[in-house]
Design a protein around this nucleic acid. Structure first.
Lengths: 203, 203
DNA sequence: ATAATTCTGACAGTCACTGTCAATAATTTT
DNA sequence: AAAATTATTGACAGTGACTGTCAGAATTAT
């Protein structure tokens, strides 16, 4: 068995995936999410429609990709502080803002890492895809909360959902506000309401 | 202008809608949600596929219908206690359990009002449709919270999302547990974690 | 070089969903 | 009661996301 992470095949794979997503975002920016078909994206990226589906599964995933899902369980455990949801949220923002890999980096200037986020709030189907992604993140957080805190399964589930979807709500406030102030400000403000949720198992 | 709520036309409308949903649920129970097509539902209900779409819009809405959305803003304000999310959640459960209208009532015994809820957790697409519905409920709750409490818009949004999706998480715990204990137990347990969220604007 | 494995594009098909239109049924007006 | 108005219906044609299959091409292992 060989390396599997540096081979030509793997490099091509990543390059292709990156290229597809980039071309797709360009088209979306030009003509709007709904008005672009998978076939057109495939043509622009010089691959077959089959490949687009192979790489992304759904049209929405071209935007949502793996903002949360690609966090490994270990990385999650590292970022997660069961006593401080607000700090955890800040860390997630910071983490995302400095992400060196993915579609956001690797391209020149001018394109904010938050470019894709706009679609979260503009396209209802994309929003739902994000919710599906938040859902997955939540169950991993709940598992972590359950094993590290003494809370019941019900409490762990509720706390995780409250945190993850609350975080999204804070993001939305940023978006509604036109993105004037930095995101972390809105997270600080909004998530303060959850401050003590994770702390004490029985209150 | 006439009554508009008792006319023959309106009665037929409701009867048809009810019938479609009932037949659809029967088919889903028999063969599973994904395996049933709209065309088959239309045939079973003796209407055209067009009518199914006219009444429900999407396949998922045949199950989700209007569990939350049909609460008027006034009814919501009545049920909502900005100082007590747990009590509010209990009231929503009680309200739903005693619902006299809709698909749940109006048919004989044997069918629990929670029959449709199972699909929330079994069919991913239905779950997402529920999330869309929760989303709408959340924005109305946030509006109410914003006007009645002194919190910032960000806090109101986060609190509403945390409440609504937390409530769903509690429901899921009930479902995962096989529905042994009554739902209100799981709500009591899980939602306790949110107890003081709505109360104080700046903590 | 050859064999095994993986990736790709082509193709055919399903089904949710949209929009339009003429026929029909209910309601209002005369 | 008939006519005019309005709402509801089914038929129809279409779009596009998504699935499954399969043979050929590219990469990797022997």
């Amino acid at each position: 068995m060989k390396d599997m992470t540096t081979g030509l095949r793997e490099r091509k794979r990543l390059a292709t995936k990156h290229s597809i997503q980039e071309k797709a975002l360009d088209l979306f920016d030009e003509r709007g999410f709904a008005a672009v078909t998978i076939e057109e994206i495939a043509e622009a990226a010089e691959v077959s429609p089959s490949s687009v589906y192979r790489y992304f599964g759904t049209k929405e995933q071209l935007i949502v990709a793996d903002d949360f899902a690609d966090l490994s369980q270990e990385a999650l455990d590292h970022i997660l502080d069961p006593h401080d949801p607000l700090g955890t949220a800040r860390r997630i923002v910071a983490d995302y803002e400095s992400t060196p890999a993915g579609v956001n980096a690797a391209e020149g200037a001018g394109k904010s890492p938050w470019r894709r986020v706009h679609y979260f709030f503009q396209e209802p189907t994309v929003r739902l895809a994000v919710y599906a992604s938040l859902d997955e993140a939540s169950s991993r957080i709940a598992a972590s909360l359950l094993s590290r805190q003494g809370m019941s399964e019900a409490k762990a589930r509720v706390a995780a959902h409250a945190f993850v979807f609350g975080y999204f709500a804070a993001l939305e406030q940023w978006h509604v506000d036109g993105g004037k102030r930095p995101i972390v400000d809105y997270v600080d403000d909004g998530m303060a309401v959850l401050r003590e949720i994770w702390t004490n198992p029985d209150r």
